[in-house]
Design a protein around this nucleic acid. Structure first.
Lengths: 227, 227
DNA sequence: GCAAAAGTGTTCTTTCTACACCCATGC
DNA sequence: GCATGGGTGTAGAAAGAACACTTTTGC
């Protein structure tokens, strides 16, 4: 039994510590995840964007740096998901992956991500490296779950959005239709968004635009927004 | 940007990877956590039980091994909590702690834990190492939260328990009184416990004993048991 | 027979769900 | 003036909260 005060250095000499980020976004077709190709460009295997954790970096900093590198965004929703460290997940070496998940509004992200990374619909994923499929499944479950009791949907939208856009976001992530009147009642009652003076013009009647209340960020105790 | 295929080995040469386990239990006084003393036996600083992760060990295996070492129990509730990897949390070295939390029934645990580890009431914690206080606060929050929507309370009780004992468990963890009739209605409706033929004799009328339904373990979708 | 803990139902309030029509704009 | 998406209220069902007395045992 090793304690903090007597670490056994050789136990971690060939362990590789990395962060990976599951970056979700939303386009008209649905929920997308950013993956980068590995190996053969003809029949690539895809992996989560990630990086080794630098000696002088926190895990959070590494993940944030990685997210910025791939999305071009400085401030985004980023949360630690889970740490994967099964010995069987990689044959060559001891691989510990601290996985984060991120939500970004597609309109703000850079068009072309580095390392040929690109977006994939979560319902139609390509061949994936190692246990990446499991990680993605868990990230998606957590995202859906989080949506039910917190206010995370806004992170995928531009600063100003219409209630229909917000509802459509929830529907795409949850994969089910929601009632328009009930949706509005609940989201407004939850008191986490506020109207702006702006409107969005479109095909029909213009839509009032709303924004996420900045002071609602702190403690979002909006449990079970959509049971 | 480092990828899985080109790891920068020197970046992790002096990183220490360890697991720590927040082991909760319950006695008559309330919720307890197992801590082990560090340094001066007169004025000790306390830390979470933990160990370096062996090269041939999964994180889960390490945590499980550590839990068994300190509790004497083979099978217990054990779940990954969070991975702490801030550079500022330890001055001497790069310290990455994958923290788990565990729930054990006190009646089954060994009486004397190794390394002079002992139980402390969560409301009256001693001096703690580094960010151990933050970790404990988070573990407690997660435990309380989990109790509201899942069936985790049983893990702290013996195999057979009365409804009053179960209610008392919930009350001690949540820190509030619950209505006896409503509690019984809900816990029985949730269909996660079943009566046994046994009774517990005591000062008053004997109590029927219940047990956790083993087939209810798989997917406990009992959300918001106690809102 | 009394102390001590176990056990049990009903009413009221709140929340959830289902559902259909009018409104403002662009063309 | 019509097509398009935006916006609004109500009634019935379900779930939650509050609440007090009877039962069984040991002493």
């Amino acid at each position: 039994m090793q304690s903090l005060s007597t670490p056994e250095t050789n136990a971690i000499l060939s362990t590789h510590l990395e962060v990976r980020v599951v970056i979700f976004s939303l386009d008209t077709r649905g929920l997308q995840v950013l993956l980068r190709p590995l190996a053969d460009p003809q029949h690539p295997i895809w992996e989560l964007p990630g990086q080794a954790v630098g000696l002088d970096q926190s895990l959070d900093e590494s993940a944030s740096h990685c997210l910025t590198h791939y999305s071009g965004l400085q401030e985004s929703y980023l949360e630690q998901l889970y740490t994967y460290g099964d010995v069987k997940r990689c044959h060559e070496k001891r691989l510990v992956s601290v996985v984060y998940f991120a939500l970004i509004p597609l309109d703000k992200a850079i068009f072309k991500s580095p390392d040929h990374a690109c977006w994939h619909a979560v319902e139609k994923l390509p061949d994936l490296l190692l246990d990446t499929g499991d990680i993605l499944a868990y990230a998606l479950r957590r995202l859906r779950y989080k949506l039910e009791y917190s206010a995370v949907g806004f992170e995928l939208l531009p600063d100003n959005f219409s209630l229909s856009e917000l509802q459509s976001t929830y529907e795409k992530i949850l994969g089910e239709k929601l009632d328009k009147r009930n949706f509005r009642k609940r989201i407004l009652k939850a008191d986490i968004i506020e109207p702006t003076p702006h409107q969005r013009l479109g095909e029909g009647r213009p839509a009032r635009l709303y924004r996420y209340r900045p002071d609602a960020v702190a403690e979002v105790k909006t449990r079970r927004l959509f049971p």
